[in-house]
């Protein structure tokens, strides 16, 4: 199964340092996520999860391998796309463990900032942000400042921010870590809905055992290598109902 519009990496390697002190954080990682799919990425500390996430997020450059995003080649061995900043802005959405909303912007402008940075008019950007906030059920807090929101509301706003430019991929780094089980599962449900609605490939890095059963596919990373396995793919409601 090959998806040109999702995210695909082949033989991705990352080496830190050189010579005797060199550390191979990634040793040939393969991964493929289709549009509309939500996959889990799990692994113990030091396994290379963060390094992989940074490579996927075009924050650090891999030492070797190939990565395509929405059909566009991002890395191919020594070659890389010239403007990775614009790539992050337009084609990759980020959801972090903490929401990291900009404290001096209200909820609407936190979400609208990305399209504004891409040069879209303020009104159009805010309109799009409000639509997403409504879809994520936080439209009523559109004028609030981040500090006035609950943790769950902040995470929804962060998801709206990640989605606002309709990126082909969203990277979610422990998005449910600060939330209780019910809110965590709600976030996963939202991510699944958004993935389906906007045909976005979503990779969720997590340690949260409560949400792991919801993934249909899981990548386990260990010692710099990924192993794909089928998940339980249970519905959020099913997991919630579990005693």
């Amino acid at each position: 199964m090959r998806h040109d519009q999702g995210i695909r990496i082949e033989g991705l390697k990352k080496r830190y340092g050189a010579g005797d002190t060199a550390v191979d954080a990634l040793k040939g990682v393969n991964m493929e996520v289709a549009p509309g799919e939500v996959v889990g990425l799990i692994g113990p500390s030091g396994s290379g999860k963060s390094t992989l996430l940074k490579c996927l997020g075009a924050v650090i450059e891999p030492s070797a391998g190939r990565m395509t995003l929405g059909g566009q080649v991002i890395y191919e061995d020594a070659w890389k796309l010239p403007d990775l900043r614009a790539l992050r802005r337009d084609k990759i959405g980020f959801v972090f463990q903490a929401p990291y909303l900009i404290p001096f912007l209200d909820v609407t402008d936190n979400v609208a900032l990305l399209p504004m940075l891409a040069g879209r008019p303020n009104n159009e950007s805010r309109k799009r942000a409000l639509e997403l906030l409504d879809a994520l059920d936080v439209g009523h807090r559109a004028r609030a400042m981040p500090a006035q929101l609950s943790g769950g509301e902040q995470q929804r706003v962060a998801i709206a921010r990640a989605l606002v430019n309709r990126p082909p991929v969203i990277l979610a780094d422990e998005p449910t870590a600060p939330l209780d089980s019910e809110r965590a599962l709600t976030v996963i449900r939202i991510l699944e809905e958004m993935a389906g609605q906007f045909a976005t490939a979503i990779i969720v890095v997590t340690h949260d055992e409560k949400i792991i059963p919801t993934f249909k596919r899981i990548y386990t990373i260990r010692d710099g290598r990924t192993h794909e396995e089928a998940g339980e793919g249970r519905s959020v409601e099913g997991v919630k109902a579990q005693p």
């Binding site: 900043r85 990291y100 900009i102 990305l114 940075l117 921010r161």
Partner: peptide
């Protein structure tokens, strides 16, 4: 610093 890192991550130009 954290907000600036987020701004840079989401594609804010250095000049901004």
């Amino acid at each position: 610093i954290r907000e600036i890192a987020v701004l840079k991550l989401i594609g804010t130009r250095n000049r901004t």
